[in-house]
Computed example of a mutant assay.
Amino acid sequence: MQALDHAHYLALAEGAEVLEADHSGNKVLRLTDGSMLKLFRRKRLVSSAAWYPYARRFADNCVILAERDIPCPKVLSVFRIAKIQRDAVHYAPLEGQTLRQIMRAPDSGDGLRAELGRFIAELHEKGIYFRSAHLGNVILTPRRTLGLIDIADMKTFRGPLRKSLRLRNFKHMLRYSEDRKWLLGQNNQAFFNGYLAAQSLCTAKELTQAMS
């Protein structure tokens, strides 16, 4: 993690577009060159973030995903900005649109739902447990492949995920009503069947119970 003094931070962020902010300040900036700067508030209380900052986790997760052939952002630098008590990751974004952005488009029908099911199965088979899984964090790239963004909240394992983690991950994906309606509305089975076809550990009955 590289120290970034306040003057250089201001120069880096000059003219940037604020994409996300909260009461404590800016969270995501699009810089003038098109790259992104994601800011994480430094934790003062005792927590895992004190010894393993979220900016570092984000960067490490990008490396792991790339090694496992999952499209994701490309990290350029990881900073500690003492003046504003923030850590930051500077990265080139993954091109494309989130599934939440395109769910109402003409090409967002059952084919895309099934593709997402297969993609989630691929993640599970490759030992990736993405706790923040939702349609706003999955990107459809210009090459029509799926990838992940906003990946600080992710755990990886050397082997495929065990069944309990897979079923829990489905509950995470369905916690937003808009996502759930697009995935499963009117008893749509495309997402469900896409996942089942790409793995053999979870049964249809178990998935149905997890998604109920």
Rank of each mutant, 00 (worst) to 15 (best):
M1E: 10
Q2S: 04
A7H: 13
A7S: 09
H8W: 12
L10W: 04
A13C: 05
E14H: 12
E14I: 05
V18F: 00
L19Y: 00
E20I: 04
V28L: 07
T32C: 06
L39D: 10
F40A: 09
F40Y: 15
K43Y: 15
R44I: 14
S47M: 08
Y54M: 14
F58I: 11
A59V: 10
N61E: 06
I64N: 01
R68N: 01
I70D: 05
K74S: 12
V75G: 07
L76P: 00
L76I: 13
F79C: 02
F79Y: 14
I81A: 04
A82N: 02
Q85H: 04
Y91V: 00
E95G: 04
E95M: 03
L99K: 10
P106E: 04
D110T: 12
L112N: 13
E122Q: 03
L123A: 02
H124L: 09
E125H: 07
G127R: 01
A133C: 09
I139C: 09
R143H: 12
G147D: 03
G147A: 00
D150S: 05
A152E: 10
T156H: 10
F157E: 03
S164I: 11
N169D: 15
N169A: 08
K171L: 14
R175S: 13
F192H: 15
G194T: 00
G194M: 11
Q199L: 02
S200L: 05
C202M: 05
A204V: 13
A210I: 09
S212T: 13
